[in-house]
Simulated scan of single mutants.
Amino acid sequence: MNTLPTSQTELVEGTAVDLDEVMATMHLAFDPAFGEAWTRSQCAGIMGLGGVWLLLARRDGQAAGFALSRGVLDEAELLLLAVQPDHRRFGIGRMLLDAVANEARSRGATRLHLEMRDGNPAAILYERAGFHEIGRRKRYYRGHDGSSFDAITLACRL
């Protein structure tokens, strides 16, 4: 991992006003070959629901990543986590993941879920954070070339 003074990276609470930043980051971070990125309307729709929160990561004042999450009762779900390619390997993904877990705990969650494409390189991040596989959806993601990929559901105790 590259070294980065924490003073250069900040996490801030985001709102629907930050949707342009979210979409720009998602465009850079998600390979369209896998069909994982959300549309603007999907993001806007979920952000208006209760229990949803958005965290933005900024490095040297520039957009670097985000995490979109929601909580219901004693469970939380990480819906999206993205770090722009030029900002990867600086610990930003882990900072976002830890902040999501802390916020989920503060909202009363005892378990955090997420879903990812089988083969996603972020799997090592989630494994190191204590997530384990609890389910699998065969051929859930559809790539632009017609290929399909399993979705893996992960969870960890908070």
Rank of each mutant, 00 (worst) to 15 (best):
G91V: 03
R142C: 10
A64N: 04
D150Q: 08
I134V: 11
D60P: 01
D145G: 08
S69L: 03
G65Q: 09
F34H: 15
A64F: 04
L28K: 11
A37R: 10
Q42H: 09
R88F: 02
G50W: 10
I152D: 04
G146I: 04
M23F: 04
S148I: 12
S41E: 12
Q42T: 11
A16W: 05
T6W: 04
L54T: 08
A33Q: 14
T25N: 08
G143E: 13
G51Q: 14
G119V: 13
A109K: 00
A57I: 03
T15Q: 13
Q8H: 09
P121V: 02
Q42Y: 12
A104D: 00
E13A: 15
A37D: 13
Q84V: 06
Y141G: 11
L11V: 01
N120S: 07
R137F: 03
P32C: 09
E21G: 05
A109C: 03
A109D: 00
T6A: 13
L28H: 09
R58W: 09
A82W: 02
H132M: 05
A129P: 01
A67Q: 02
V12M: 14
Q62W: 05
G14W: 11
K138W: 02
T153K: 06
Y140K: 09
L11I: 15
R70K: 15
F149P: 12
L158N: 01
H27L: 12
T39E: 11
E103Q: 10
F149V: 11
E75C: 00
R111P: 00
R88T: 03
I152G: 02
R59F: 06
G91W: 04
V52F: 15
R59K: 12
P32N: 11
L154Y: 06
T9H: 07
G135P: 02
C43W: 13
I152R: 03
L68T: 14
Y141P: 05
N2R: 10
E75L: 00
A57V: 05
A99L: 15
M1S: 04
S41F: 02
N102W: 05
G119N: 14
M116A: 05
A104I: 00
A123Y: 07
V17L: 12
E115Y: 05
H87Q: 08
H132Y: 06
M23P: 02
F30D: 07
G143H: 13
R136S: 05
L11W: 06
E127K: 11
Q8F: 05
F131T: 04
E127A: 12
C43K: 05
D150A: 10
A129Y: 05
T9R: 12
E75K: 01
D98L: 12
L11K: 06
D86A: 10
D60C: 03
A57F: 09
L154M: 14
T39W: 07
R105T: 03
L81W: 06
L80A: 13
A101D: 01
S41L: 08
G91P: 03
T110I: 00
R59P: 04
A76E: 01
T110G: 09
V12A: 14
R58P: 10
A109G: 02
A122H: 02
N120R: 00
E103C: 06
M47K: 13
E75M: 01
V12F: 09
D20P: 12
R139L: 04
H144E: 11
G14H: 11
L112H: 00
T153C: 07
L56A: 10
H132K: 06
